[in-house]
Every structure is written in structure tokens, then in C-alpha cells.
Write a protein that binds this DNA or RNA. Structure first.
Lengths: 322, 322
DNA sequence: CTGAAAGCGCTTACAG
DNA sequence: CTGAAAGCGCTTACAG
């Protein structure tokens, strides 16, 4: 590996001059800079970032802790966040949750973002996270103790979904999924705000996977009192539920309306293009990138940042047939 | 940030002793080690990996260059690879292709893996890759100049698919997708090996996305001479094609059989559980992890490693109705 | 078994 | 405008 000293020798200057030339130090005479850059170029010199980082104390890397990669939502967000961070001069490294925080405390990234979607051991993470002693925040949570965070106002999202369904004449609106307290709570409050009755039987148990959604519908005993519309907990659950509804012979949206949480591009590729609620993923990525950069620069920030989910109309909701 | 020197002071030993204790150097007296570890623990000492890396020249990080995150195949493989590398004591960082190689040459990872699925500018990548001057290999390619690689024998996979369909009585077997030379070639050769005729019209143009597969079928003029079975280029194309077939009123597999390339877990969640061909993703991840570790250790390796795709029977293929 | 010292490849006041 | 020197936080022969 060729180093700054080699370049110095070849260019006939001191190595501190090389360092300055490479870093665009204005104190360096243009001619000298040219010469140094030419030599560096010629010998394919690559700065050793490790050494630079050790010296400056900064790595220009931001860590992103993810629960898992299997939900399309996560990979989608990772991709967008990567793009936004790159625009701002940072590299992003992805680490899977089970060891994410530890890794960052070792790697000394400049900052880190914890995606708090449905972490199993959330408490433990928050605790570790708070001791991390570097700029970091929690993304997509409802609230976080001891950390700045970007909140997605999921309750408001659910309100929009319920409101939309009610405006189509639905009065028995079900919810598929019981693993996320905030969404379930949002669903209940939305019913209340719109003057609809809450019915325990209209909440179908499902955790987070496609199968969960699928079996939630399959195991539901449909009857005269069953919902005429459902809201799915997330993209996977909703798609699983849609499949089960179709297999059971229901037409969506003619017989039953369906709204899915998460506005992923591929929600429109479902058998019936799905109406969704969810935050704009682009907005999420932009806000996340800006917040972490501000935190690193120790700028004044207004936290929590709150992002409002939107209703995205497609073909899976229709007027309720009485 | 607390350093090795702080610990040394607190424990009443020299900082080189602290370093050794922390690294499990057998020359250190157990009692001393205990003491040091206790102090380190008490003060939440975290080793600065940057400094260690600078000193040892190794980072214990492996870079994985990906084309994109949007194809479920890629995120799936990333997840598995991460797991396998972790078992072997390495961190994995993911970088998106457009700047991946440059990043690694700066970050000085210990090794890197290039996922060569359908890179647009493959030539450029290979070239950069070869100059990288660190252990690295190309994963999933058919062949690579100047680098070790893990080959997926896609031609053999296509042969298995064609053979299976022929055994079910199909003689007009179509292929959806024309963006991957190797697969297309494999398809042609498989027809030849099984004694079936190649028909230009049975190759439907599609690049790689869900929509590509969907529109390939929609735009196909079905007639008496049309294929009674199709093989889809990848997971997305196949699922898009399936949707289009169903929408056009064909029953799969009663009217038309369909086999998809890529054995992702969710291929079974398609409207009809899809019969697939493709390498075992677990095997792929294990082989990749072992190869990079061997390369880093400068061990003797047998390259290329060749992985054989398998046929995974589900419900999308059936006897051809004459 | 322990410690002093050199070195990893940079950056950055500081002196000239 | 340029260079000598100290320092970033570790590891690792080497001496004792």
C-alpha cells in the first residue's frame, strides 16, 4: 500500500505538505498542489481512511440499525436513506439489530439511526442506545425516552383510513394485526372519533408476516356481523389477508374493502391494487438524513420530528353494499 | 471516550499490559487480567477499533457490494450472508453498487464480495474490482476474468426446468426474459438437449421487474402455437407473469405451467405456489462466507466454486393437456 | 510475567 | 507558502 510518505518522496515535498494538498488546504501553492495530485494520481494513491479517522476522530460513516431485511419496507427505506446520506457526504453501513448497537460503539461511526419498527426487545435497545454517547436517534417510533426521534403519527394514519372507509358507508371496520400497540390504539381511537362502535371480534390476531395475515382471515368466522372492510397492520399482513379473502371467494373491493398500512411501491402489484396509508418513504429518508447530520454538527434541532401518514387511493376500497 | 491509558492508570498497570489483557494474551497473569477486565467493565471501556485496525492492518469487516436492494433476492442473500460472516467473526457492511468499490478501497475492509447479478456496467466493475488489491471475489456470476468467483450453474438449472416440463408432456416451452444472456443460452441448450425445437416467438422480452413479466404476458399474442409452459427469468418477472396469466383467464397450472427462477421463500406465496429452480440460498451464503475467509487467510482455494440450482416442486406445473 | 518504545498513516497547530 | 513534530488509540516485538 502506497502512503502519504511515498508520495512526499516522489513529489519532493514533505508529507505534511502532501496531506494538505490532498485536503485542499488553501495555504498550499497551486503549483505544488498540482504536482502532488499528479503524483498521487499516477500511483493510484488511496487515502487510508482509518488513519484519517483516528486522527480527526470522525469517520463520515453513519450506522443504520435494522430489525431485519426480510420485510420489503426495511430494504426500501435502507436504499432511500443510503441515497440521501450519500448526497450529504456520508457513507451508510447497515447492521442487523441483534448486534447493531455494539458494533457501532466499537466502530465509532459518526452517528447512528435505530429503526424502531417492531423490535422484540425494544427496552434493551433503547437502554443501550442511550449509552452510546454519539449522535443518534430513533426512527419511526411513537416516542423514545432519552433520545431524539422521528415520530410517525400512526394513530393519525389510522384515523384517515377509518374516516375514508366510513365515508364509503362502512360501519363495521376490522383490523388485522395485534402486535403493534400504537396502531391498535389508533384504530380504537379512530372508531371513537368517527362515532363507530369498537367490537373485540373485529380485531384479527396477526403478528407481522404474510402468513399471519393470510391465516388471520382464514381463521376468521365470517358471519352477518363481520366487518365489511379491513385495515391491515402492515404491507405483508395486508397482502396475505388479501390472498385469503380472494381464495375464500370474496371480491375485493366489491364484497369487502381493504386498506393496507405501508405505502410501498409494490402494494399496487397486489392482486387488487391496494389502497394504503403510510408515511411517504421519501420524506422519511430525507428527514432522517437531515436530522442525523444536524445532530452530528451539533446544530439546534426541533425534536421530535413528526411525519404524517397519507392516504393513497387505489382499487381496494369501495362503497359498502348494504 | 475512555482509553486504554485511562484503564491502565486506574488498574495500576502499564497500558501495554492492559492491551494484552484485553486481547487474552496468555503471558498475562490471570490475577492481573481479572483486575484489568474488572476496571474496563466498570468504566464501560470500548476498544477503539479504528486504532486497532490501523495498528494491525486488519478491520474484520467484509464489504458486500450490491446492485440494489429492491429485488427481494438481494436483501434475502444479504441477510443470510451477514449471519454466516458473523459466525466467522466478521462484520459485514453493505454498500450499493454505484460507489461500492470506491468505498472499500478507502475504508480498507479486509475483503469484499461483489454480487454480480445483472450489473449494468459489469465490465467497469470487474476492472475496478481487479485493481482493488485485497481479497475479493465475484458471487453468482457465470465467469469472471481476473477474480476468483462462485459460479451458479444457471444453464444446468434451466436444463432441469425444461426437463421437468418435458416429462410432464410439454413440448412448447416458453421463456420470459431476455436480459440475461446466460439464462437465455441455457434455455436454448436445454431445448436442444431434450430434443425440443427452439422457437423465437417463445422468448418473451422482459428485463427484470415485476412489470416486465406482467407486460410480457399481456403483450404476447396467444395462439394455437403458443407455449403450454413458461419459465420466468427471475422471481419478480415470474410473479408478474403469473398475475397476467391469471388475469387473462388462464388457469395455472391447468392451462399453462409456470416455473420461476430464484427459490425465494415467498415464491410459495404467489397466487399459485410456484415451482422454482435456483440455488439454495443457504448454500450460497455459506459458500460465500467460507470463500472470503479463506481468501483473507491466504489459504489454498479451489475456484471457481460451482453451485448447482435445484428444482423445487410446488403447484404451478402439471401435465400438459393435449 | 510486565513495561518502555516504536510504529500503524494520517491531521493540524505551530514555527519559520 | 512549507516543514518538523506531536498526537489520534491501539498492537507487538523486545528487553528485563
Amino acid at each position: 500500500m502506497i502512503t502519504i510518505k511515498d508520495i512526499a518522496k516522489l513529489a519532493g515535498v514533505s508529507y505534511s505538505t502532501v496531506s494538505k494538498a490532498l485536503n485542499d488546504d488553501p495555504a498550499i501553492k497551486p503549483a505544488t498542489k498540482q504536482k502532488v495530485l499528479a503524483v498521487a494520481e499516477k500511483h493510484q494513491y488511496r487515502k487510508n481512511m482509518l488513519a484519517r479517522q483516528l486522527s480527526t476522530g470522525r469517520s463520515n460513516i453513519i450506522g443504520f440499525v435494522l430489525d431485519e431485511l426480510s420485510n420489503p419496507l426495511f430494504s426500501n427505506i435502507s436504499g432511500r436513506l443510503h441515497t440521501e446520506l450519500k448526497k450529504r457526504g456520508y457513507q451508510m453501513i447497515l447492521v442487523v439489530a441483534d448486534d447493531g448497537v455494539d458494533v457501532f460503539s466499537q466502530l465509532r461511526v459518526d452517528g447512528c439511526i435505530l429503526w424502531d419498527y417492531a423490535l422484540d426487545n425494544r427496552e434493551m435497545f433503547w437502554k443501550k442506545f442511550a449509552t452510546l454517547n454519539m449522535p443518534c436517534f430513533v426512527l419511526g417510533t411513537d416516542e423514545a425516552p432519552n433520545s431524539p426521534y422521528i415520530k410517525i403519527d400512526r394513530k393519525e394514519g389510522l384515523f384517515k383510513a377509518v374516516e375514508h372507509l366510513k365515508s364509503l358507508g362502512h360501519s363495521r371496520i376490522g383490523f388485522i394485526g395485534n402486535s403493534q400497540h400504537v396502531k391498535l390504539e389508533g384504530y380504537r381511537e379512530a372508531l371513537q372519533r368517527t362515532g363507530l362502535a369498537f367490537n373485540e371480534d373485529h380485531v384479527l390476531p396477526a403478528h407481522s408476516s404474510w402468513e399471519d395475515g393470510y391465516f388471520a382471515i382464514r381463521n376468521h368466522a365470517f358471519g352477518a356481523d363481520s366487518p365489511t372492510a379491513f385495515i391491515g397492520l402492515n404491507n405483508l399482513v395486508t397482502r396475505g389477508a388479501l390472498r385469503a379473502l380472494l381464495e375464500a371467494g370474496y371480491s375485493v373491493p366489491r364484497d369487502i374493502s381493504l386498506i393496507g398500512y405501508d405505502d410501498l411501491p409494490d402494494m399496487q402489484y397486489a392482486e387488487v391494487a391496494l389502497t394504503t396509508i403510510g408515511p411517504s418513504l421519501d420524506e422519511l429518508a430525507v428527514q432522517a438524513a437531515e436530522l442525523i447530520v444536524s445532530l452530528i454538527r451539533d446544530e439546534q434541532v426541533d425534536v421530535p420530528v413528526v411525519i404524517q401518514p397519507k392516504l393513497n387511493l387505489r382499487n381496494s376500497t369501495a362503497m359498502c353494499r348494504q
